[in-house]
Design a binder for these strands. Structure first.
Length: 311
RNA sequence: GCCGCGGUAGCUCAGUCGGUAGAGCAGCGGACUGAAAAUCCGCGUGUCGCCAGUUCAACUCUGGCCUGCGGCA
């Protein structure tokens, strides 16, 4: 860890509730690092408990980037993540410190490490709305079939029910005249030399941690946090408010479920998220997995991480 | 002790005039290139409490046993 070369970055990933933030903070004791959050939800201000954001104390102990940079009704996307993360990496390196990307949003991390192309095809909400109403009228099949002559590859790969992706593919074609599928195959030289660490838990143990954390989140005032956001006028339809913990709590606050129901839904949906993350990471190569567990002292985990980081 | 009801998937339960079983939830697997904590697709995982009997065939009918719950003593 003492000899991270100048263009090397550190990445800490793993499923939700695996202790990524904690590991990063502990690593900061021996590595002069700054943390860049690769988390699609921690960017939103005022969404603290539900996103299990590092505390203000932790954030002042070690510099954090890409946290609290948006209001819950502002747009946010992988592309902006890439831009801001790249800039943060440059800045941190200019300070002679080590950028440490921490987060469980695999899509963001993959985009950053594989240097996805930043093409001029931003979301076109009017177009999306048009397509949505087309789908409502003529059905998802018909919408999907619009891809047939524009982007046959996507037509083949996307399931007709996957409306979001179908519309995005159409939107991309509309904006660029090229199929989005051509972009997928593009390979580019990675911009960074990254030491990628992944935290791994035995599944049942992780599930138990998830349940415990959910209990804690409600105890710490998740419901009050969500109520406050709603009162400030943030609609529950917003992507931010559709995040884990938030959508379930909105339903509870609207009287659609009891507190206990909301709680167990949060637990279930978090487990499901973890499962999707397993699937995602399983395909990602180059991750150095570190085994964590209730029988494994945490400082062993930290020591493993230090060794792998310094390689 | 007696009477009644029950014992089928991890949980709650449905079911078969006898042809070895299916829902919901949970769970598991997968996809993913500008919403990704989102979105989408797929999969029953089972000594039908145990033992015997009747039958070509028993989860189903009969008997016994075990066990849970309720009631009466």
């Amino acid at each position: 860890m003492r000899n991270l070369s100048t263009n090397e970055i550190l990445v800490i990933t793993g499923p939700t509730a695996s202790g990524k933030s904690r590991l990063a903070l502990d690593l900061a004791a021996s590595i002069p690092l700054e943390i860049i959050s690769a988390d699609s939800m921690q960017v939103y201000r005022g969404m603290d408990i539900g996103t299990d954001k590092p505390s203000t104390e932790e954030q002042s102990r070690v510099a954090h980037h890409l946290i609290d940079i948006k209001y819950p009704d502002q747009e946010w996307s992988v592309e902006e993540f890439m831009r801001l993360a790249q800039r943060a990496i440059k800045d941190i390196q200019a300070r002679g410190r080590v950028p440490c990307v921490v987060g469980g949003t695999g899509f963001y991390i993959r985009a950053l490490l594989r240097d996805y192309a930043l093409v001029d095809a931003p979301p076109d909400w009017e177009f999306r709305r048009k397509m949505q109403s087309f789908a409502r009228q003529d059905g998802n099949e018909a919408l999907h079939n619009l891809l047939l002559d524009r982007d046959p590859v996507s037509w083949r790969h996307l399931h007709p029910q996957d409306q979001k992706r179908v519309i995005r593919a159409l939107e991309y074609y509309e904006a660029t005249g090229k199929p989005i599928s051509s972009r997928v195959g593009e390979t580019r030289a990675p911009r960074y030399r990254a030491a990628v660490l992944g935290l791994r838990w035995e599944r049942q143990e992780l599930y138990k941690k998830i349940d415990t954390r959910a209990e804690e989140q409600f105890r710490r005032g998740l419901a009050e946090e969500v109520a406050g956001l709603l009162k400030r006028g943030y609609s529950e339809e917003l992507p931010s408010m559709q995040g884990l913990c938030y959508k379930e709590t909105c339903n509870y606050l609207a009287g659609l479920s009891t507190l206990d129901e909301a709680k167990s839904l949060v637990m279930r949906n978090t487990r499901r998220l973890a499962k999707r993350q397993f699937t995602w990471f399983a395909k990602e190569d180059g991750i150095n997995w570190i085994q964590a567990g209730k029988d494994r002292p945490w400082d062993h985990v930290v020591r493993d991480a230090e060794e792998m980081a310094g390689r």
